[in-house]
Design a protein around this nucleic acid. Sequence first.
RNA 1: GGAGGGUUGGGCGAGCGGUUGAAGCCGACCGACUUAUAAUCGGAUGUACGUGUCGCACCACCUACCGAGGGUUCAAAUCCCUCACCCUCCGCCA
Length: 932
Amino acid sequence: MDYKQTLNLPKTPFPMKANLVKKEPEILERWEEMGLYEIIRQTSEGRKRYMLHDGPPYANGHIHMGTAFNKILKDIILKSRQMAGFDAPYVPGWDCHGLPIEHRVDQELGPRKLEMSQAEIRRYCREYAEKYIEIQRNEFKRLGVLGEWENPYLTMNFPYEATIIREFGKFALNGSLMRSKKPIYWCISCKTALAEAEVEYEEHSSTSIFVKFPMISDLGRAYGTLKGKEVFIVIWTTTPWTLPANLAIALHPDLEYVAVETENNQVMILAKGLLDVCMDTFGIKSYEILERLKPADLENLKARHPLYDRPSVIVLAPYVTLEAGTGCVHTAPGHGREDYETGVEYGIDVYSPVDDSGRFTNDVEYFAGLEVFAANRAINDKLTEVGALLKEEEITHEYPHCWRCKNPVIFRSTEQWFISMEKNNLRQNALDAINRVSWIPSWGQERIYNMIASRPDWCVSRQRAWGVPITVFFCKECDQLIISQEIVDHIAGMVEKLGADIWFTESEEDLLPPATSCPNCGSGRFRKETDILDVWFDSGVSFAAVMENREYLDSPSDLYLEGSDQHRGWFHSSLLCSVGTRNEAPYKNVLTHGFVVDGAGKAMHKSAGNVIAPDELIRNYGAEILRLWVAGEDYRNNIRLSKEILQRLTEAYRRMRNTCRYLLGNLNDFDPETDRVPYRQMEELDRWALNRLQELNQRVLGAYDNFNFHLVYHNLHNFCVLDLSSFYLDIIKDRLYTSPQKSVARRSAQTAINEILEVLVRLMAPILSFTSDEIWQYMKRAEQAPSVHADLFVPVNDTHKDPELLRRWEGIIEIRGEVTKALELARREKTIGHSLDASVTLGLSSELMEMLSAYRDQLRSIFIVSSVDMIEIDRLEDGLESDTISGLKVKVSPSIDPKCERCWVHDPTIGEDNTHPTVCKRCLKVLNEIIT
RNA sequence: GGAGGGUUGGGCGAGCGGUUGAAGCCGACCGACUUAUAAUCGGAUGUACGUGUCGCACCACCUACCGAGGGUUCAAAUCCCUCACCCUCCGCCA
């Protein structure tokens, strides 16, 4: 007789091989067809809401590991909050406006762009954004991320644009908005502002000049030898044309300067470290150092501009070097970034007397109307004429050029719009708001706090096409700024219906409410602003456009979750937008994660060749492995990604999958409705398993709660491997297989593993979203949610908590460890093969004897051997003395009994029955039950 | 240059003054089983230096090693300092 047929072996159609790459798309399709996200929304209606607000990725290019990581992390949080009993909707968003798209469109359009209207260019940009939104949407969905993908928020949607205009209007109307100057890159042939990305550095030949500025302030008081002398401070520049805009001279605070007397009794001030080389350049042979000067003594003293009758103030700046020049840096706050910052620090005007086409304006004496590069010659001539030019020489250096027309660009200050950090106490209010938010990890607070504390006013205007216009007007007559609540509402209303393009296509008269007149001069003729808004303002108001606007969402959000770079980005701009208009942060908690780096901890760069694309991993491993990676790594630090890491995860995945498969296989004939055994009647080992399950459940739920997903993963994996696979399941195998199908012994174990699977499949779901749902479909219940994701976590069951029981078993497990060690030794010596070939004798101290006596009958199955004898330790002659447990000796010997053909246990009762002579008494009993 | 964070054994990660050479899991290694079978179970598993009468193998012991170096302490992976390396931010980049 083939006794194998009489065993209850596991049986399940659930495939061992995951085949994720093929199966994931099928599961996604199923979710799509059934409308899983909508089902979840319906089932959780009315629950307490959990609001995670999505930071919008930029709608440009394919997703990368960083964006994939971020989206999966969000998905894990949302799914876990959802299953913890919240209503956690997810509205993904995209940032659509901005330079990168405009720049790409520029490149695609080429020269055609010059003939196109702004509205036409904007149409191309919109199409470009739409294209990549579609691409990224599919890539995100492929990761198993659930959300309102068909109704995301886009910063270029008309209602969103209207919100931007309304929110900006609040700043304009509350007095925070100011107009002020700031230098930017400017191409004088394209007559346009350029971004750093649009500037190319090329070799360029320039005339560099050394120029003397006579000191106005008397140095004689601090340095007596200089009394009554004609003192000059000497500067060097490679851009003579910026000299008319000179307002200051910068010295390094820590460098040493000298006053040097030359042959014609003139005294020059320059850095000591450059003295010799300068004198050599000037051709001055004999000179004498009169004084060593401390820069601090010179600060705020005045020199006179060599061409104009105005002072040039001496300032201190850390960027001054001794690499070239004189150590005294010509400073024109209107024509250089560092100059500008120094100017702001010292309260110096931002003077930039150059127009759009690069010509000096009329208030520049001698050079008005001259194009700046052409003016270099004239300026040098004039300097020579007044005797200020010490030396002129040609140098070649790297100079910025326009990416499109290849001409050199200039740095020029223009009127810009700023949101003041001080006027309405925005800085302090923002700092206060920061302290009311919980930042995870906690150092995020300090980081953003310092940024807000030291940041300059927010420049919100851009001279660009692809963005939301700054919707203010000026009176054509008196240049009065025209803005009012009525105008904001009027325009926002139009934009809401027709989009922000109307700003560019419609005339002022059509954009303004009828009969608008200038409050200053009464004029009815207006000019609209042509600048657009910084796109950080776009995404910064997403809390208003999305969370406040959709009735199923709330603001402030419970959570913003982005990479740590967003302390400067979205967290920052959102904070300012929200505090400036509502005086509170738009979020209660901010969670940040690190960056994805390669296996060696290096950043991923195309040039380094270490970039891994999500798509590549999905094709080779499946999105599920990516999800496991996201969960398994501690996201607070940099997140490493390598082939080896994925390999490890794939193996861990297989283990968990297979454990679940085994559970499914053994539940094949189990109907929890009718077959469940009450807890009190279950075997103690099964109750042990349920106890451990409660511990796991509690720990994992807590880990989800605290965003400790790597603990979720490690706990789940350890439970599958340690508690289940190598211990519990291994032991109950015998009971499950050989006991009568419907026996209490078997049903007891099945009750336990059924409960285990119910808990496990849910705990896994936020991370292993595909596999858990696949398992879900194989679980047989009278009533069940259509997907695990529409269900809830199983609450911790306190009635299954029995610490006393767990403690007892800790001891048994420890002893079991010693037994398996002894078995392995016997195996080495070839005395046994399978552990069931062995008979074990335990030599026990009286304490251990007492502890184990209640388990006398269970020990052979717990150890998975054929028999266990327990005797006093002193009576056991040989055997392995445990070095971890005192009072324990283990002796292993091959069983002398024959092996039962059915259950493989060696037993003396085999052969007692004639019909089944190769079977033990225990199996015989079962057979008789089955056969009748 | 400024601001913020990090560096634990081949991998993931515990640990955050003593019980830690450092949990647990994985891997690589050896073995068992063929009743979870492209699965499952068990065991052992850091490196270097020195000592154990010569060399080799093995074993036992000692010491050192948690980026490097110093310090505090009876005691440090854990606290302090210095340095190195890595990551993020400081753009009309998002």
